[in-house]
């Protein structure tokens, strides 16, 4: 689609002042930026105030890949188009080694920039991180403060006791207390 237009560059500035120059098509993956570009209010550097440079790098990586996919599949013959499995594997690889704080920043960034695909990837990653964990482990992982009083925690745990039932691991733990 964008083949006819010449490659226009867009400059983005992260919250810590680093400036990235990317092709317009790459920036347009982010719907927020797309809107800005279409309204022509972005000749200078676009400040992205809530995203740090390392996160922005990652986001740009993602956008570049999306551009590559869509440009290859918009032509009639598309050997580069990924199958479902490849896409999944790619997503996993992309998210590999991302720790919880980076992940949160990524989620905030993709939410702010309105990049649905990345948001989905992040949420999936989040789910996989939560899976199989106990409340305390989840708190530790995401630095969530336990603001329940001991009584409240006891109560809410009882309410949701079934979720912990049939979990031999949990039973072992609670009986050893």
């Amino acid at each position: 689609m964008s083949e006819s237009t010449e490659k226009k560059m867009v400059r983005l500035r992260s919250s810590d002042g680093e400036v990235f120059e990317v092709e317009e098509s790459v920036a347009k993956v982010a719907k927020t930026l797309q809107d800005m570009l279409e309204e022509d209010c972005a000749d200078a550097v676009i400040p992205i105030t809530c995203v740090r440079a390392p996160i922005l790098t990652k986001v740009i990586d993602y956008c570049k890949d999306q551009v590559m996919i869509s440009s290859s599949s918009s032509t009639t013959n598309n050997p580069n188009e990924r199958t479902e499995q490849e896409r999944k594997a790619w997503g996993q690889k992309f998210m590999e080694g991302v720790d919880s704080s980076t992940l949160c920043e990524l989620l905030v960034a993709s939410n702010f920039l309105n990049i649905e695909g990345l948001l989905n990837l992040g949420v999936d990653k989040m789910v996989s991180m939560i899976q199989g964990k106990y409340p305390q482990e989840i708190r530790d992982m995401f630095n969530v403060v336990n603001d329940f009083t001991p009584e409240e925690e006891e109560e809410i745990r009882n309410q949701n006791a079934w979720a912990f039932e049939r979990d031999p691991y949990y039973k072992k733990r609670s009986s050893s207390k």
Binding site: V123, V127, I130, P135, I138, V144, F148, E153
Partner: peptide, 20 residues
């Protein structure tokens, strides 16, 4: 969105994490 994708059991576990 994250909670939506969790299985029910896990969702209930997550209720014990914090008030929010």
């Amino acid at each position: 969105e994250i909670f939506r994708r969790l299985p029910k059991r896990l969702r209930c576990k997550c209720r014990c994490v914090s008030k929010r």
